[in-house]
Each structure stands twice: as structure tokens, then as C-alpha cells.
Nucleic acid binder design. Sequence first.
DNA 1: AGATGTTCGGTTGTCTGACAACATGATTGC
DNA 2: GCAATCATGTTGTCAGACAACCGAACATCT
Lengths: 245, 245
Amino acid sequence: MSQAFAKVARPRRLPDEIADRMAEAIRAGELRPGDKLPSEPSLATRFGVARSVLREAISQLRYDGLIEARQGVGAFIADPRSRSAFRIGPACFKKRQELLKLLQLRSGVSVEAATLAATARRPEHLAALEDCLDAMRAAIVRGMEGAAARVDAELRFYSTVAAASGNEYLEEFLSVLENRILSELHSVAVKNAMASEWSERVVGEHKAVLVSIRDMDPEAAHDAARRHFERAAKRLADRTDIADV
Amino acid sequence: MSQAFAKVARPRRLPDEIADRMAEAIRAGELRPGDKLPSEPSLATRFGVARSVLREAISQLRYDGLIEARQGVGAFIADPRSRSAFRIGPACFKKRQELLKLLQLRSGVSVEAATLAATARRPEHLAALEDCLDAMRAAIVRGMEGAAARVDAELRFYSTVAAASGNEYLEEFLSVLENRILSELHSVAVKNAMASEWSERVVGEHKAVLVSIRDMDPEAAHDAARRHFERAAKRLADRTDIADV
DNA sequence: AGATGTTCGGTTGTCTGACAACATGATTGC
DNA sequence: GCAATCATGTTGTCAGACAACCGAACATCT
């Protein structure tokens, strides 16, 4: 029922559509580095769109470093080494396995953030972290309907840890990662699944991270964060009731 | 003299220029989420460019999730939560501190990759890793002029580790990260600096990672990789001869 | 012959103007 | 009052033109 009123898919815009197709072709290896693209007018007629549309598509690909265009010469598939952006497309969420891989990435970054936070944290970070723990506890006593709040609190907890690390790249990357994971997984069912095994014991895992950061003990923070993510991965892997949407 | 003949900076393209400026304004908080942008014709005249140019700029910002445009309504600064790409601009390399932060990010991801590789690795990965170690050793005996080769071999080593982890997101992200770091730091001087303290002992750090992965011992791989990056960071931090370009 | 200038065709970069698709609010008709 | 309609402003797309630029072939000079 809640699915019936889900957001309707907006018709995609032409440049995005074309950019996606070309990016796919490049990543799949159909177009190889150094290859010269057909001229813009030619490509435009081949795709059946105006040149301005095709230019917008190529502009996006150039932005990510997938294509290199030289005025007066042509456009070429760029060397993979010149890619300048890490992008998480909607294609990443087709299978549960993909989600697990993204969580692994998140885990690595978060653990590093916790380690660094233990030396760079300032008092205001500690207060914010305490707040997150309180929010978790409050959400737990609310039972099932508090599941979403629990997940949000955890995300905020690690965002704060990243902020406390003093490394804005860690912070921004984690933010992108979490937001993408969350925006694709907004179904309450999955939130429930992620939070189902939660209990005061899980809050304890987070508290261990907080305590280590407070005591400025990087090694302990590292271990505590790592332990939490390891257990979280295990909890998620054990659940078989998450549909492979 | 060699500076006089350095590559001349190519004039930037208008859409990129505009996109950069607007992105900067958004990140700096001058434009806040939810704000409505002026209409395209208005913005175009304000920037003094044609609407097609401005549209290409906006197209790039939309691509990263910084702007949300709705036909018939207008364009708005998007919620920060909807950012879909992590981008490493050239601005990241102004100061050595920035480089250190990127290396921290790299470290976290690499350590996670090594941990996972210890369970997912296949025989061909081991062979590739051995090759990298051999390349390092061969570069070391060549002394100074082998410095670039040493750095390349180390990068390839951890790219291979990421590949062995079976997690293509880890692999791709690390690839983007390393390529950006390297492409901005191509000066041989810095390569030398990074490699200056190298010796058979440093190769030993990598060998420890390889052995743990071979023996399928995730904990040992984790510790070995972490130890290496910690020492690498220390080695780099100790050097004061790297100019703050 | 070799180096230097010139022309030419093709490609990307930019500009201009127009129309289509769409959303919102005001107007009209009942 | 209320629904349908229209007017207006915005983004999306299209079409054509010219400018800037590059590479190669050609012409010219020493």
C-alpha cells in the first residue's frame, strides 16, 4: 500500500539518458581509451537529438574525466587514470550484495575517521556524540516505530565522528556514501531490518567508540569502531528476509 | 629555464568556469539549500554568456546533485543529502596538509581492502602482488632514478589488493583517489620525497600484507596494512623538505 | 632539400532565436 | 463556490550560424 503511493519516476532528460548510455559503453569497454568519438553533429543525428543535447551529455562525461575533448580535433575516450569523480549510480542498489559492498566501503572510511577523531576531536564533538547516543536509546524504547530514528541516529553518530576527525574529505565522502545508501533504501522495511537486532548492547558498541575518542586513545577507537562494523555486517548478512529488490 | 618552457595553461571553457564558480558559492554557503536560482536567461546575461553555455554549467552541477531543476518551475539549490558524487578538485593540492588528508582517506580504504582481500583473493591476485614486490625491489637497486618506478609499483600493489577484495567499489574509489593524487603530484621531486626512505625494510611491510593475504588471515592483513600506512604517514610527516606548493 | 608560411577542411566552442513541455496562479464561466 | 481555462514564466529541446582552433596538405622561400 505504501508502495502504491511511492514517488513516480520522472521522465528522464535526454542529456542524462545519453550520458548514461555512453558512460555504460565506456565502463563496459566497448569504447576504449584513446578511441576517437564520432563528431558531435554525427552523434547527434545518430542519437536523434539536437547537438545542444548531445553537448550537455558529453559535458557531463568530460566532467567526470571519462571523455577528453579538444577543440578543432575531436573528442576521445580518456585514460582511466584521469577520472576525477567517484559516483554512486542507482545501479548500485539492484542486489543486496551491492549494498554489502557499499557498506564495506563505508566501514573502512568510518574506522579511519574514528581513529583520527581520537586525536583531533574537540569538546563540542563529544557533546554531539553523546546526543546521538541519547537519541538511539530514546528510539530503542519506542520499539518498532522508532526504527527509522535509530538508523538516523547512527548515521549522525558517524557523520559526527567524521567531522571530529578534522578531515573534511573523510567527512564529505562519508556523507555522500551514507546519503546515497539511505536515499535508495528509504523503505521502512529495510530500516527495520538494519535496526532489528538493535538493543542496548549495540548502543554499547557505539559507546565504546565514544569513550575511546573521549579518552583520546586512537588504538582503542580503531578497534571499537572496527568491532562494531564487523558485527553490523554479520548481523546484516545473517538476515535473509531482505528481499533482493 | 625549464620553467620558461613549461606547459601553457589552456584557457578554460566557459561552462566549466561557471560551474566551478557556482559550485564554490554553494559549498561556501552563499547559496543555501532550497534557494531558487534566477532564470536561465537572466543568469546567462548576468554571466555574459549564451544560455547554452549556462545550461551546460547547470547540467554539470545537476549531475553532482548540487542543483535540482524542475521544468516549468525553476532551478533550486539541492539538499546536501542528494549529492551523488565525490569529486576531487585541483584545489585539494594547494597545501601539503590537504595531501595528508587525502592520504588518510586512502589509508582507510586500503586497509579495508587488504582485510577483505584476505578472504576473497584468488591465485592470480597473489601472482600479481608478487610481481609488484619484485618491481619494487628492482626499482630500489636502481637508486634515485628508480624512485618513480617504486611509487608506481606501490600504487599498483594496492590497486591489486583492492581488486583482490572482490569489491569493485573499493577498487574504483581507490583508483580515482590514487590517480588524482598522482596526477597532481607528478613532480619527480615529490616522488623522490615519498620514496626517499624506502628500503628493503619498507618492502617488508608490503610483504607482510601479501603473506597475510596469501594465508587468508584477515586480521593479520588488516594489522599489516595498517602498520604500513601508519609508518608511511609518519615518514611523510617527518619530511620538511616538501615545498608547500 | 629543408625550413617556413599559407590555405583548407573538419571539429569543437559559443551565440542567437525559436518552439515545446510543463507548472503555477489568475481569470473566466457556471 | 468551484471547476475549467487561459496567461505567464520557466526549463527542455531544436535548428542554424559563426568563431576558434587544429592538423595536414600545399605553396614558397632560402
